[in-house]
Design a protein around this nucleic acid. Sequence first.
DNA 1: TGCATCCCTTGATCAAAATCAACCTGCCGC
DNA 2: GCGGCAGGTTGATTTTGATCAAGGGATGCA
Lengths: 255, 255
Amino acid sequence: MERTIGKFNPQPKHAAGEVTISCESCLVRDQALCGKLNVDELIAINQISRRRRLKAGQRITLDDEAPEYFGIVLSGSVKLTKVLPDGRQQIVGLLFPSDFVGRPFEQQAGCHAEAATDVNLCAFPAGPFERLARDYPAIQHQLFRFALSQLSAAQDWMLLLGRKTAREKVISLLLMFAGRLSETGCAAGKTSNRLEFALPLSRSDIADYLGLTLETVSRQFRVLKSEELIRLHGSRGVTILDLDRLRASFSHPTA
Amino acid sequence: MERTIGKFNPQPKHAAGEVTISCESCLVRDQALCGKLNVDELIAINQISRRRRLKAGQRITLDDEAPEYFGIVLSGSVKLTKVLPDGRQQIVGLLFPSDFVGRPFEQQAGCHAEAATDVNLCAFPAGPFERLARDYPAIQHQLFRFALSQLSAAQDWMLLLGRKTAREKVISLLLMFAGRLSETGCAAGKTSNRLEFALPLSRSDIADYLGLTLETVSRQFRVLKSEELIRLHGSRGVTILDLDRLRASFSHPTA
DNA sequence: TGCATCCCTTGATCAAAATCAACCTGCCGC
DNA sequence: GCGGCAGGTTGATTTTGATCAAGGGATGCA
Protein backbone atom coordinates (compact mmCIF):
# COMPACT_ATOMS: atom_id res chain seq x y z
CA MET A 1 0.00 0.00 0.00
CA GLU A 2 2.18 2.80 -1.33
CA ARG A 3 1.54 6.34 -0.25
CA THR A 4 2.92 9.61 -1.44
CA ILE A 5 2.89 12.74 0.58
CA GLY A 6 2.74 14.97 -2.42
CA LYS A 7 4.16 18.47 -2.40
CA PHE A 8 3.69 20.53 0.66
CA ASN A 9 5.77 23.18 2.30
CA PRO A 10 5.27 23.49 6.02
CA GLN A 11 6.42 26.86 7.25
CA PRO A 12 9.58 26.24 9.23
CA LYS A 13 9.25 27.54 12.78
CA HIS A 14 12.47 27.50 14.69
CA ALA A 15 13.05 27.45 18.42
CA ALA A 16 16.14 26.76 20.49
CA GLY A 17 17.36 23.22 19.84
CA GLU A 18 14.40 22.40 17.63
CA VAL A 19 14.11 22.04 13.88
CA THR A 20 11.10 21.50 11.68
CA ILE A 21 11.27 18.12 10.04
CA SER A 22 9.54 16.67 7.08
CA CYS A 23 7.66 13.37 7.17
CA GLU A 24 8.92 12.65 3.66
CA SER A 25 12.27 11.49 4.90
CA CYS A 26 10.97 9.80 8.04
CA LEU A 27 12.27 6.27 8.42
CA VAL A 28 9.66 5.06 10.87
CA ARG A 29 6.61 6.61 9.23
CA ASP A 30 5.30 3.43 7.67
CA GLN A 31 5.33 1.56 10.96
CA ALA A 32 4.22 4.48 13.12
CA LEU A 33 0.66 5.73 13.36
CA CYS A 34 1.47 8.38 10.73
CA GLY A 35 1.79 5.61 8.16
CA LYS A 36 -1.98 5.16 8.17
CA LEU A 37 -2.84 8.83 7.73
CA ASN A 38 -3.78 10.61 4.53
CA VAL A 39 -1.97 13.62 3.13
CA ASP A 40 -4.06 16.25 4.92
CA GLU A 41 -3.63 14.60 8.26
CA LEU A 42 0.06 14.14 7.68
CA ILE A 43 0.51 17.78 6.78
CA ALA A 44 -1.37 18.84 9.88
CA ILE A 45 0.70 16.64 12.13
CA ASN A 46 3.91 17.65 10.44
CA GLN A 47 3.11 21.29 11.10
CA ILE A 48 3.26 20.86 14.84
CA SER A 49 6.09 18.34 15.04
CA ARG A 50 9.55 19.17 16.31
CA ARG A 51 12.50 16.86 16.48
CA ARG A 52 13.84 16.32 19.97
CA ARG A 53 17.05 14.66 21.06
CA LEU A 54 17.27 13.07 24.48
CA LYS A 55 20.37 11.72 26.14
CA ALA A 56 20.25 8.36 27.92
CA GLY A 57 18.73 8.82 31.35
CA GLN A 58 16.96 12.06 30.48
CA ARG A 59 13.52 12.36 32.02
CA ILE A 60 10.53 12.92 29.74
CA THR A 61 7.70 13.00 32.29
CA LEU A 62 7.10 12.38 35.96
CA ASP A 63 4.20 10.11 36.76
CA ASP A 64 2.04 12.76 38.44
CA GLU A 65 2.50 15.65 36.06
CA ALA A 66 0.88 16.35 32.72
CA PRO A 67 3.51 16.02 29.99
CA GLU A 68 4.18 19.07 27.83
CA TYR A 69 4.60 17.01 24.72
CA PHE A 70 3.89 13.63 23.18
CA GLY A 71 5.97 12.01 20.51
CA ILE A 72 6.95 9.17 18.27
CA VAL A 73 10.24 7.41 18.89
CA LEU A 74 12.52 7.73 15.87
CA SER A 75 15.54 5.96 17.34
CA GLY A 76 16.58 4.56 20.70
CA SER A 77 14.27 3.30 23.45
CA VAL A 78 12.16 4.93 26.12
CA LYS A 79 11.39 3.18 29.39
CA LEU A 80 8.29 3.69 31.51
CA THR A 81 8.64 2.95 35.21
CA LYS A 82 6.48 2.82 38.31
CA VAL A 83 8.00 3.22 41.76
CA LEU A 84 6.89 2.14 45.23
CA PRO A 85 7.31 4.60 48.13
CA ASP A 86 10.27 2.59 49.45
CA GLY A 87 12.13 2.74 46.16
CA ARG A 88 11.37 -0.66 44.67
CA GLN A 89 10.66 -0.12 41.01
CA GLN A 90 9.24 -1.84 38.00
CA ILE A 91 9.62 -1.00 34.34
CA VAL A 92 6.07 -1.20 32.98
CA GLY A 93 6.76 -0.46 29.36
CA LEU A 94 9.54 -0.10 26.84
CA LEU A 95 9.05 1.92 23.67
CA PHE A 96 10.96 1.37 20.45
CA PRO A 97 11.18 3.29 17.17
CA SER A 98 7.70 3.97 15.72
CA ASP A 99 6.04 3.73 19.16
CA PHE A 100 3.98 6.61 20.50
CA VAL A 101 5.01 8.24 23.78
CA GLY A 102 2.42 9.77 26.08
CA ARG A 103 -1.26 9.64 26.92
CA PRO A 104 -3.32 12.30 25.20
CA PHE A 105 -6.32 13.62 27.21
CA GLU A 106 -5.04 12.23 30.51
CA GLN A 107 -4.22 14.65 33.29
CA GLN A 108 -1.30 12.61 34.60
CA ALA A 109 1.35 10.70 32.73
CA GLY A 110 0.83 7.72 35.05
CA CYS A 111 4.45 6.69 35.08
CA HIS A 112 7.92 8.10 34.78
CA ALA A 113 9.11 8.11 31.20
CA GLU A 114 12.82 8.39 30.50
CA ALA A 115 15.23 7.75 27.69
CA ALA A 116 16.80 4.31 28.19
CA THR A 117 19.36 5.02 25.49
CA ASP A 118 19.99 8.17 23.47
CA VAL A 119 16.68 8.90 21.81
CA ASN A 120 15.42 10.83 18.83
CA LEU A 121 11.84 11.86 19.13
CA CYS A 122 9.33 13.38 16.74
CA ALA A 123 7.63 15.51 19.38
CA PHE A 124 4.19 17.17 19.37
CA PRO A 125 3.23 19.85 21.90
CA ALA A 126 0.44 18.38 24.05
CA GLY A 127 -2.29 20.97 23.49
CA PRO A 128 -2.04 21.27 19.70
CA PHE A 129 -1.74 17.52 19.35
CA GLU A 130 -4.91 16.90 21.35
CA ARG A 131 -6.72 19.43 19.20
CA LEU A 132 -5.53 17.61 16.11
CA ALA A 133 -6.66 14.28 17.52
CA ARG A 134 -10.12 15.72 18.06
CA ASP A 135 -10.28 17.29 14.61
CA TYR A 136 -9.05 14.27 12.70
CA PRO A 137 -10.83 11.06 13.70
CA ALA A 138 -8.23 9.02 11.82
CA ILE A 139 -5.56 10.20 14.24
CA GLN A 140 -7.73 9.26 17.19
CA HIS A 141 -8.35 5.91 15.59
CA GLN A 142 -4.64 5.22 15.27
CA LEU A 143 -4.08 6.32 18.85
CA PHE A 144 -6.77 3.91 19.97
CA ARG A 145 -5.27 1.04 18.05
CA PHE A 146 -1.84 1.79 19.45
CA ALA A 147 -3.26 1.90 22.97
CA LEU A 148 -4.79 -1.53 22.42
CA SER A 149 -1.49 -2.94 21.23
CA GLN A 150 0.22 -1.49 24.30
CA LEU A 151 -2.46 -3.03 26.49
CA SER A 152 -1.92 -6.37 24.86
CA ALA A 153 1.84 -6.13 25.40
CA ALA A 154 1.26 -5.16 29.03
CA GLN A 155 -0.93 -8.23 29.53
CA ASP A 156 1.69 -10.51 28.03
CA TRP A 157 4.14 -9.00 30.46
CA MET A 158 1.78 -9.62 33.37
CA LEU A 159 1.81 -13.29 32.49
CA LEU A 160 5.60 -13.15 32.47
CA LEU A 161 5.81 -11.33 35.80
CA GLY A 162 3.28 -13.48 37.58
CA ARG A 163 3.98 -16.92 36.25
CA LYS A 164 7.34 -17.36 34.56
CA THR A 165 10.59 -18.55 36.15
CA ALA A 166 13.78 -16.49 36.05
CA ARG A 167 15.08 -18.51 33.11
CA GLU A 168 11.83 -18.09 31.20
CA LYS A 169 11.75 -14.38 31.93
CA VAL A 170 15.23 -13.81 30.54
CA ILE A 171 14.57 -15.90 27.44
CA SER A 172 11.26 -14.09 26.84
CA LEU A 173 13.08 -10.78 27.11
CA LEU A 174 15.72 -11.81 24.59
CA LEU A 175 13.07 -13.04 22.16
CA MET A 176 11.06 -9.84 22.61
CA PHE A 177 14.16 -7.74 21.93
CA ALA A 178 14.98 -9.91 18.94
CA GLY A 179 11.51 -9.27 17.53
CA ARG A 180 11.30 -5.55 18.16
CA LEU A 181 14.90 -4.66 17.33
CA SER A 182 15.01 -6.63 14.10
CA GLU A 183 11.73 -5.15 12.87
CA THR A 184 13.05 -1.66 13.54
CA GLY A 185 16.35 -2.43 11.86
CA CYS A 186 18.44 -2.09 15.02
CA ALA A 187 19.81 -5.62 14.93
CA ALA A 188 22.55 -7.09 12.79
CA GLY A 189 21.10 -10.46 11.94
CA LYS A 190 23.39 -12.82 10.10
CA THR A 191 20.83 -15.46 9.26
CA SER A 192 17.19 -15.82 10.19
CA ASN A 193 18.24 -17.94 13.13
CA ARG A 194 21.12 -15.87 14.44
CA LEU A 195 20.80 -12.33 15.66
CA GLU A 196 23.13 -9.79 17.19
CA PHE A 197 22.10 -6.61 18.93
CA ALA A 198 22.86 -4.21 21.74
CA LEU A 199 20.68 -4.50 24.83
CA PRO A 200 18.87 -1.20 25.29
CA LEU A 201 18.89 -1.68 29.08
CA SER A 202 21.48 -2.15 31.83
CA ARG A 203 21.40 -5.30 33.97
CA SER A 204 19.66 -3.39 36.70
CA ASP A 205 17.00 -2.07 34.30
CA ILE A 206 16.51 -5.56 32.93
CA ALA A 207 15.99 -6.75 36.50
CA ASP A 208 13.41 -4.01 37.02
CA TYR A 209 11.69 -5.02 33.81
CA LEU A 210 11.54 -8.73 34.70
CA GLY A 211 10.76 -8.40 38.38
CA LEU A 212 14.09 -9.98 39.38
CA THR A 213 17.31 -8.80 41.01
CA LEU A 214 20.27 -7.85 38.87
CA GLU A 215 22.27 -10.75 40.33
CA THR A 216 19.68 -13.24 39.13
CA VAL A 217 19.64 -11.66 35.67
CA SER A 218 23.40 -11.83 35.46
CA ARG A 219 23.41 -15.48 36.51
CA GLN A 220 20.75 -16.42 33.97
CA PHE A 221 22.74 -14.75 31.18
CA ARG A 222 25.74 -16.77 32.28
CA VAL A 223 23.69 -19.99 32.23
CA LEU A 224 22.40 -19.32 28.70
CA LYS A 225 25.94 -18.51 27.64
CA SER A 226 27.23 -21.77 29.11
CA GLU A 227 24.54 -23.60 27.15
CA GLU A 228 25.84 -21.98 23.96
CA LEU A 229 22.47 -20.36 23.36
CA ILE A 230 23.85 -16.84 23.42
CA ARG A 231 27.16 -15.05 23.30
CA LEU A 232 27.93 -11.89 25.27
CA HIS A 233 30.16 -9.02 24.12
CA GLY A 234 30.91 -6.38 26.68
CA SER A 235 27.98 -5.62 28.92
CA ARG A 236 25.40 -4.62 26.30
CA GLY A 237 26.20 -6.83 23.32
CA VAL A 238 24.33 -10.10 22.78
CA THR A 239 24.25 -12.63 20.00
CA ILE A 240 21.43 -15.13 19.91
CA LEU A 241 23.15 -18.08 18.30
CA ASP A 242 20.03 -20.05 17.45
CA LEU A 243 16.60 -18.49 17.83
CA ASP A 244 14.79 -21.81 17.42
CA ARG A 245 16.90 -23.56 19.99
CA LEU A 246 16.47 -20.63 22.37
CA ARG A 247 12.70 -20.86 22.00
CA ALA A 248 12.85 -24.64 22.44
CA SER A 249 14.86 -24.42 25.64
CA PHE A 250 12.41 -21.96 27.12
CA SER A 251 11.75 -23.86 30.32
CA HIS A 252 14.60 -26.35 30.43
CA PRO A 253 18.09 -26.59 28.96
CA THR A 254 18.20 -28.57 25.73
CA ALA A 255 20.89 -31.20 25.25
CA MET B 1 -22.93 18.08 33.83
CA GLU B 2 -26.53 16.85 33.55
CA ARG B 3 -27.73 15.14 30.44
CA THR B 4 -31.13 14.09 29.27
CA ILE B 5 -31.80 11.50 26.64
CA GLY B 6 -34.96 13.09 25.42
CA LYS B 7 -37.70 11.10 23.74
CA PHE B 8 -36.76 8.40 21.36
CA ASN B 9 -38.30 5.11 20.41
CA PRO B 10 -35.89 2.50 19.21
CA GLN B 11 -37.67 -0.20 17.26
CA PRO B 12 -37.56 -3.31 19.39
CA LYS B 13 -35.89 -6.20 17.59
CA HIS B 14 -36.20 -9.49 19.34
CA ALA B 15 -34.07 -12.59 19.08
CA ALA B 16 -33.83 -15.72 21.22
CA GLY B 17 -32.76 -14.79 24.74
CA GLU B 18 -32.25 -11.15 23.83
CA VAL B 19 -34.33 -8.10 24.59
CA THR B 20 -33.98 -4.52 23.45
CA ILE B 21 -33.13 -2.31 26.37
CA SER B 22 -33.37 1.36 26.88
CA CYS B 23 -30.47 3.47 28.11
CA GLU B 24 -32.91 5.59 30.05
CA SER B 25 -33.12 3.09 32.86
CA CYS B 26 -29.49 2.04 32.73
CA LEU B 27 -27.82 2.16 36.12
CA VAL B 28 -24.25 2.25 34.91
CA ARG B 29 -24.71 4.74 32.08
CA ASP B 30 -23.21 7.70 33.89
CA GLN B 31 -20.03 5.85 34.70
CA ALA B 32 -19.76 3.95 31.44
CA LEU B 33 -18.58 5.42 28.16
CA CYS B 34 -22.21 6.05 27.18
CA GLY B 35 -22.41 8.67 29.89
CA LYS B 36 -20.29 11.01 27.80
CA LEU B 37 -22.27 10.64 24.59
CA ASN B 38 -24.91 12.98 23.22
CA VAL B 39 -28.47 11.97 22.38
CA ASP B 40 -27.81 10.99 18.77
CA GLU B 41 -24.89 8.80 19.68
CA LEU B 42 -26.83 7.24 22.51
CA ILE B 43 -29.76 6.44 20.26
CA ALA B 44 -27.44 4.87 17.70
CA ILE B 45 -25.74 2.73 20.30
CA ASN B 46 -29.03 1.79 21.92
CA GLN B 47 -30.33 0.56 18.56
CA ILE B 48 -27.74 -2.17 18.32
CA SER B 49 -27.53 -3.13 21.99
CA ARG B 50 -28.92 -6.37 23.38
CA ARG B 51 -28.90 -7.45 26.97
CA ARG B 52 -27.00 -10.64 27.61
CA ARG B 53 -26.91 -12.77 30.73
CA LEU B 54 -23.89 -14.92 31.45
CA LYS B 55 -23.57 -17.52 34.16
CA ALA B 56 -20.42 -17.66 36.26
CA GLY B 57 -17.72 -19.47 34.34
CA GLN B 58 -19.28 -18.86 30.94
CA ARG B 59 -16.77 -18.11 28.23
CA ILE B 60 -17.08 -14.84 26.31
CA THR B 61 -14.09 -15.12 23.97
CA LEU B 62 -11.07 -17.31 23.40
CA ASP B 63 -7.80 -15.47 23.04
CA ASP B 64 -7.19 -16.32 19.41
CA GLU B 65 -10.63 -15.77 17.96
CA ALA B 66 -12.40 -12.58 16.99
CA PRO B 67 -15.27 -11.98 19.42
CA GLU B 68 -18.76 -11.77 17.96
CA TYR B 69 -19.78 -9.02 20.31
CA PHE B 70 -18.44 -6.33 22.64
CA GLY B 71 -20.26 -5.05 25.66
CA ILE B 72 -20.52 -3.01 28.79
CA VAL B 73 -20.72 -4.81 32.13
CA LEU B 74 -24.00 -4.00 33.88
CA SER B 75 -23.51 -6.27 36.89
CA GLY B 76 -21.03 -8.91 38.00
CA SER B 77 -17.39 -9.20 36.97
CA VAL B 78 -15.55 -10.48 33.93
CA LYS B 79 -12.04 -11.90 34.15
CA LEU B 80 -9.43 -11.82 31.41
CA THR B 81 -6.80 -14.53 31.51
CA LYS B 82 -3.65 -15.56 29.68
CA VAL B 83 -2.42 -19.12 29.74
CA LEU B 84 1.00 -20.70 29.22
CA PRO B 85 1.22 -23.90 27.14
CA ASP B 86 1.77 -25.96 30.31
CA GLY B 87 -1.35 -24.63 31.98
CA ARG B 88 0.04 -21.96 34.30
CA GLN B 89 -2.28 -19.03 34.07
CA GLN B 90 -2.51 -15.38 34.97
CA ILE B 91 -5.55 -13.17 35.25
CA VAL B 92 -4.55 -10.02 33.35
CA GLY B 93 -7.67 -7.97 33.88
CA LEU B 94 -10.88 -7.84 35.85
CA LEU B 95 -13.85 -5.87 34.58
CA PHE B 96 -16.56 -4.40 36.79
CA PRO B 97 -19.90 -2.74 36.10
CA SER B 98 -19.52 0.15 33.60
CA ASP B 99 -16.34 -1.35 32.10
CA PHE B 100 -16.14 -2.10 28.39
CA VAL B 101 -15.46 -5.68 27.26
CA GLY B 102 -13.61 -6.38 24.05
CA ARG B 103 -11.18 -4.82 21.61
CA PRO B 104 -12.80 -3.22 18.61
CA PHE B 105 -10.80 -3.39 15.36
CA GLU B 106 -8.49 -6.14 16.62
CA GLN B 107 -8.51 -9.49 14.87
CA GLN B 108 -7.93 -11.48 18.03
CA ALA B 109 -9.33 -11.01 21.49
CA GLY B 110 -5.84 -11.44 22.96
CA CYS B 111 -6.99 -13.22 26.07
CA HIS B 112 -9.72 -15.49 27.32
CA ALA B 113 -12.64 -13.52 28.71
CA GLU B 114 -15.08 -15.26 31.00
CA ALA B 115 -17.71 -14.36 33.54
CA ALA B 116 -16.15 -14.53 37.01
CA THR B 117 -19.58 -14.24 38.62
CA ASP B 118 -23.03 -14.14 37.04
CA VAL B 119 -22.89 -11.22 34.63
CA ASN B 120 -25.32 -8.91 32.92
CA LEU B 121 -23.95 -7.38 29.80
CA CYS B 122 -25.14 -4.65 27.47
CA ALA B 123 -23.84 -6.31 24.32
CA PHE B 124 -23.12 -4.87 20.88
CA PRO B 125 -22.57 -7.06 17.82
CA ALA B 126 -18.96 -6.57 16.72
CA GLY B 127 -19.48 -5.41 13.14
CA PRO B 128 -22.20 -2.84 13.73
CA PHE B 129 -20.39 -1.51 16.79
CA GLU B 130 -17.18 -0.95 14.85
CA ARG B 131 -19.15 0.86 12.17
CA LEU B 132 -20.67 3.07 14.84
CA ALA B 133 -17.26 3.78 16.35
CA ARG B 134 -16.03 4.92 12.95
CA ASP B 135 -19.10 7.06 12.28
CA TYR B 136 -19.17 8.76 15.66
CA PRO B 137 -15.77 10.10 16.72
CA ALA B 138 -17.08 10.66 20.25
CA ILE B 139 -17.54 6.92 20.67
CA GLN B 140 -14.02 6.29 19.44
CA HIS B 141 -12.79 8.96 21.82
CA GLN B 142 -14.42 7.25 24.78
CA LEU B 143 -13.04 3.91 23.71
CA PHE B 144 -9.58 5.44 23.56
CA ARG B 145 -9.89 6.92 27.01
CA PHE B 146 -11.12 3.64 28.39
CA ALA B 147 -8.20 1.81 26.78
CA LEU B 148 -5.81 4.25 28.44
CA SER B 149 -7.37 3.67 31.83
CA GLN B 150 -7.09 -0.08 31.31
CA LEU B 151 -3.46 0.37 30.34
CA SER B 152 -2.83 2.36 33.47
CA ALA B 153 -4.47 -0.31 35.63
CA ALA B 154 -2.41 -2.98 33.89
CA GLN B 155 0.78 -1.07 34.66
CA ASP B 156 -0.17 -0.73 38.32
CA TRP B 157 -0.68 -4.46 38.34
CA MET B 158 2.73 -5.04 36.76
CA LEU B 159 4.29 -3.19 39.67
CA LEU B 160 2.32 -5.44 42.03
CA LEU B 161 3.30 -8.64 40.21
CA GLY B 162 6.95 -7.77 39.86
CA ARG B 163 7.75 -6.07 43.11
CA LYS B 164 5.26 -6.62 45.89
CA THR B 165 5.37 -9.30 48.60
CA ALA B 166 2.53 -11.76 49.14
CA ARG B 167 1.16 -9.67 52.00
CA GLU B 168 1.29 -6.50 49.94
CA LYS B 169 -0.36 -8.21 47.01
CA VAL B 170 -3.30 -9.41 49.06
CA ILE B 171 -3.77 -6.03 50.74
CA SER B 172 -3.58 -4.27 47.37
CA LEU B 173 -6.22 -6.62 46.04
CA LEU B 174 -8.55 -5.94 48.95
CA LEU B 175 -8.10 -2.19 48.59
CA MET B 176 -8.68 -2.40 44.84
CA PHE B 177 -11.89 -4.38 45.39
CA ALA B 178 -12.96 -1.94 48.06
CA GLY B 179 -12.54 0.92 45.62
CA ARG B 180 -14.18 -0.65 42.59
CA LEU B 181 -17.02 -2.43 44.38
CA SER B 182 -18.02 0.55 46.50
CA GLU B 183 -18.03 2.90 43.51
CA THR B 184 -20.29 0.49 41.65
CA GLY B 185 -22.55 0.04 44.65
CA CYS B 186 -21.74 -3.63 45.16
CA ALA B 187 -20.42 -3.21 48.69
CA ALA B 188 -22.31 -2.73 51.92
CA GLY B 189 -20.17 -0.14 53.68
CA LYS B 190 -21.15 0.65 57.23
CA THR B 191 -18.87 3.64 57.70
CA SER B 192 -16.27 5.19 55.46
CA ASN B 193 -13.66 3.10 57.18
CA ARG B 194 -15.43 -0.23 57.26
CA LEU B 195 -16.56 -2.12 54.21
CA GLU B 196 -18.19 -5.45 53.54
CA PHE B 197 -18.39 -7.17 50.18
CA ALA B 198 -18.35 -10.51 48.39
CA LEU B 199 -15.10 -11.42 46.66
CA PRO B 200 -15.83 -11.81 42.95
CA LEU B 201 -13.11 -14.46 42.66
CA SER B 202 -12.33 -17.85 44.20
CA ARG B 203 -9.07 -18.35 46.10
CA SER B 204 -7.57 -19.99 43.07
CA ASP B 205 -8.58 -17.10 40.80
CA ILE B 206 -7.19 -14.65 43.33
CA ALA B 207 -3.94 -16.59 43.24
CA ASP B 208 -3.93 -16.37 39.44
CA TYR B 209 -4.57 -12.66 39.67
CA LEU B 210 -1.77 -12.01 42.16
CA GLY B 211 0.82 -14.39 40.76
CA LEU B 212 0.75 -16.53 43.91
CA THR B 213 -0.46 -20.03 44.81
CA LEU B 214 -3.84 -20.49 46.40
CA GLU B 215 -2.20 -21.77 49.59
CA THR B 216 -0.25 -18.56 49.99
CA VAL B 217 -3.39 -16.49 49.40
CA SER B 218 -5.29 -18.49 51.99
CA ARG B 219 -2.49 -18.05 54.51
CA GLN B 220 -2.29 -14.30 53.95
CA PHE B 221 -6.04 -13.97 54.48
CA ARG B 222 -5.64 -15.87 57.72
CA VAL B 223 -2.79 -13.57 58.82
CA LEU B 224 -4.83 -10.43 58.11
CA LYS B 225 -7.73 -11.97 59.96
CA SER B 226 -5.54 -12.74 62.98
CA GLU B 227 -4.39 -9.12 62.95
CA GLU B 228 -8.05 -8.06 63.14
CA LEU B 229 -7.73 -6.16 59.88
CA ILE B 230 -10.41 -8.17 58.13
CA ARG B 231 -13.17 -10.62 58.95
CA LEU B 232 -14.11 -13.56 56.75
CA HIS B 233 -17.62 -14.95 56.26
CA GLY B 234 -17.89 -18.14 54.32
CA SER B 235 -15.43 -18.35 51.46
CA ARG B 236 -16.42 -15.23 49.52
CA GLY B 237 -17.46 -12.76 52.20
CA VAL B 238 -14.98 -10.20 53.54
CA THR B 239 -15.27 -7.25 55.86
CA ILE B 240 -12.48 -4.73 55.92
CA LEU B 241 -12.66 -3.56 59.51
CA ASP B 242 -10.51 -0.46 59.12
CA LEU B 243 -9.50 0.76 55.69
CA ASP B 244 -6.94 3.21 57.06
CA ARG B 245 -5.29 0.63 59.26
CA LEU B 246 -5.25 -1.84 56.37
CA ARG B 247 -3.50 0.73 54.20
CA ALA B 248 -1.09 1.54 57.01
CA SER B 249 -0.12 -2.08 57.58
CA PHE B 250 0.62 -2.56 53.90
CA SER B 251 4.13 -3.91 54.33
CA HIS B 252 4.23 -4.82 58.02
CA PRO B 253 1.70 -5.69 60.69
CA THR B 254 0.70 -2.72 62.81
CA ALA B 255 0.55 -3.02 66.58
C1' DT C 1 49.99 6.09 35.57
C1' DG C 2 47.09 5.57 39.19
C1' DC C 3 42.79 6.17 41.35
C1' DA C 4 37.83 6.25 41.53
C1' DT C 5 33.50 5.00 39.89
C1' DC C 6 30.14 2.45 37.71
C1' DC C 7 28.44 -1.69 36.26
C1' DC C 8 28.71 -6.39 36.14
C1' DT C 9 29.99 -11.03 37.94
C1' DT C 10 30.50 -14.57 41.30
C1' DG C 11 29.99 -16.91 45.68
C1' DA C 12 27.75 -18.04 50.23
C1' DT C 13 23.76 -17.88 52.82
C1' DC C 14 18.96 -16.98 53.79
C1' DA C 15 14.06 -16.56 53.47
C1' DA C 16 9.70 -16.16 51.13
C1' DA C 17 6.75 -18.57 48.73
C1' DA C 18 6.08 -23.01 46.19
C1' DT C 19 5.22 -27.64 46.57
C1' DC C 20 3.53 -31.76 48.50
C1' DA C 21 0.21 -33.76 51.42
C1' DA C 22 -3.54 -34.19 54.54
C1' DC C 23 -7.58 -32.71 56.18
C1' DC C 24 -11.71 -29.71 56.82
C1' DT C 25 -16.33 -27.88 55.53
C1' DG C 26 -20.23 -26.78 53.13
C1' DC C 27 -23.13 -28.21 49.52
C1' DC C 28 -25.22 -31.25 46.26
C1' DG C 29 -27.83 -35.22 44.92
C1' DC C 30 -29.63 -39.38 46.37
C1' DG D 1 -28.79 -39.04 56.72
C1' DC D 2 -24.95 -40.25 53.81
C1' DG D 3 -21.45 -40.15 50.27
C1' DG D 4 -18.97 -37.45 47.15
C1' DC D 5 -16.84 -33.45 45.65
C1' DA D 6 -15.23 -28.81 45.06
C1' DG D 7 -13.11 -25.33 47.35
C1' DG D 8 -10.65 -23.91 51.28
C1' DT D 9 -7.35 -24.47 55.24
C1' DT D 10 -3.29 -26.07 57.52
C1' DG D 11 1.17 -28.24 58.13
C1' DA D 12 5.89 -30.08 56.68
C1' DT D 13 9.40 -29.63 53.47
C1' DT D 14 11.78 -27.91 49.47
C1' DT D 15 13.25 -24.67 46.17
C1' DT D 16 13.90 -20.56 43.78
C1' DG D 17 15.48 -16.37 43.77
C1' DA D 18 16.77 -12.63 47.23
C1' DT D 19 20.17 -10.90 50.08
C1' DC D 20 24.70 -10.12 51.70
C1' DA D 21 29.38 -9.74 50.47
C1' DA D 22 33.42 -9.51 47.73
C1' DG D 23 35.84 -8.93 43.66
C1' DG D 24 36.63 -7.79 38.47
C1' DG D 25 36.89 -4.88 34.47
C1' DA D 26 36.06 -0.92 31.77
C1' DT D 27 36.08 4.08 31.57
C1' DG D 28 37.15 8.72 32.93
C1' DC D 29 39.90 11.94 35.15
C1' DA D 30 43.75 13.96 37.77
